[in-house]
Amino acid sequence: MIKVLFFSHTMPLHNLRRVKAILFLPLLLSGCFDHYRTTENLCDDNPDLCQPLNLNDGQCRIQRTKLIWQRYDTLQTPTDEHKFKELKATKEYQFCLEYAARIEPTELKQRKTKRIQALYHSYESIERLNQELLPSQNPHIIYYRWSQGDQIAKQQFMALEGDKKLEHPELQLALARYYVNKNKHKTLDLLHHSLSLYKAKDNINISILRTLSTLYYQQQNMAAAYVWTNITTHYHPNNAPQKIAIHNSFKLTNTEREKLDRTTLNIIATLNSGQYQRTDIMTQ
């Protein structure tokens, strides 16, 4: 049934304007957000973004779609941040293609050729994006270049130590990895600080929690190692075997375990709420 709205001539003018604004709002929103409703529509209007990829192939569909839309975002706003996202999306696509290219299609043999061509295209795209991002001063991109073996990027990144630009959990973790074999106490400081930078409902990098557990174990601070292992298991349930090993090796009394379990829950609550502050746990 179609409902028709009639406007009374007695309706106040400001109310009439408000109703008209509400009626036209969906049209305005659809014009802003639904310019391309499907990937196919996007590719029809922007063939250069899509044609080099293995279209109409069931392999790597998710990675391919993500890459296409990220390429479109980069085309619209060609910032270093968007290029970096495109680079990461291309690498995910490439990783999938390297596996898919080894699969022999059961029907159309040319599909394998298209996959290999798309794979070569991904290599070229990654090289191009790496070159375009070479001058970037974004610390995340600098760290990425360092992680790929760029020693100049390593010097650039370490020169930023203490700068507010590195006030991000992942960047503090990067510093911690640098110091882990040089200064254990500084490493612990950096790891705790990285946790304090998370906001409520952020996804916490499990490597931070696991490294805290390992370092405290190496320092023979079994209470702290026990707590951080429990926290690691909470955020990464597949880590349960390690928790069992810790329980068996620490030989804690029931009273000690109960007290440390309460500490564990308190820390998890502060992490979930984005209000973590360093908690020192000493063996009694």
Rank of each mutant, 00 (worst) to 15 (best):
D34I: 08
L271V: 05
Y93P: 04
A269Y: 07
F33I: 02
I208K: 00
A100G: 08
E170N: 13
C32Y: 09
Q94A: 10
A245S: 15
E258R: 12
R115N: 11
K85Q: 11
N54H: 01
L171A: 02
Q51D: 15
K88M: 13
C43H: 09
F6Q: 13
V4Y: 14
F95K: 15
K91L: 03
Y123I: 03
H14A: 10
N272M: 00
A89K: 05
H168W: 03
W69A: 03
V180N: 06
Q219Y: 03
Q148G: 06
W228G: 02
Q156I: 01
Q110C: 07
E86T: 05
Y235T: 07
T74W: 10
T264R: 12
T283I: 07
L5I: 15
I268P: 00
L75E: 12
K199P: 13
L108N: 14
H247D: 15
S249E: 13
E127F: 14
K251P: 13
G58E: 09
L25P: 00
L134R: 12
N41G: 03
K186E: 05
F250R: 12
E161K: 01
A118Q: 04
K201G: 06
K66L: 06
H192D: 13
Q155V: 06
P47Y: 10
G149F: 01
H121A: 11
F33H: 09
W146H: 03
K184R: 07
E107Y: 14
E98F: 13
S8C: 10
K184T: 10
I206Y: 03
P47S: 08
S249R: 14
N205L: 08
L49W: 07
L173Y: 02
T214P: 00
K243M: 15
L195C: 09
T90V: 03
L160S: 07
T79F: 04
Y179Q: 01
T253S: 14
E98L: 11
Q63I: 00
T263H: 05
M222E: 12
R257C: 11
H140Y: 14
A159Q: 06
K182E: 08
Q76R: 13
R210H: 13
N56V: 01
E124N: 09
R64W: 02
S194I: 01
R257P: 08
G162P: 02
S30N: 14
M282Y: 14
N272F: 00
L5T: 13
D45W: 12
C50Q: 06
P78R: 02
L87Y: 08
H247I: 15
P241G: 11
K85L: 12
S8E: 09
T113F: 05
D57R: 07
Q151G: 00
F33A: 00
D202T: 09
Y198T: 10
S8M: 10
T279G: 00
R145E: 01
L133W: 03
Y235C: 04
I204L: 00
A200M: 02
Q219D: 07
T211R: 11
L195S: 04
L28R: 10
H14V: 04
A100F: 08
T263W: 04
F7A: 09
Y93E: 12
R177N: 05
A225M: 08
D189W: 08
L133V: 01
L29Q: 05
L252T: 08
N54M: 01
K201H: 11
Q59I: 03
N221W: 12
R71Q: 15
L49V: 04
D48N: 15
E92H: 10
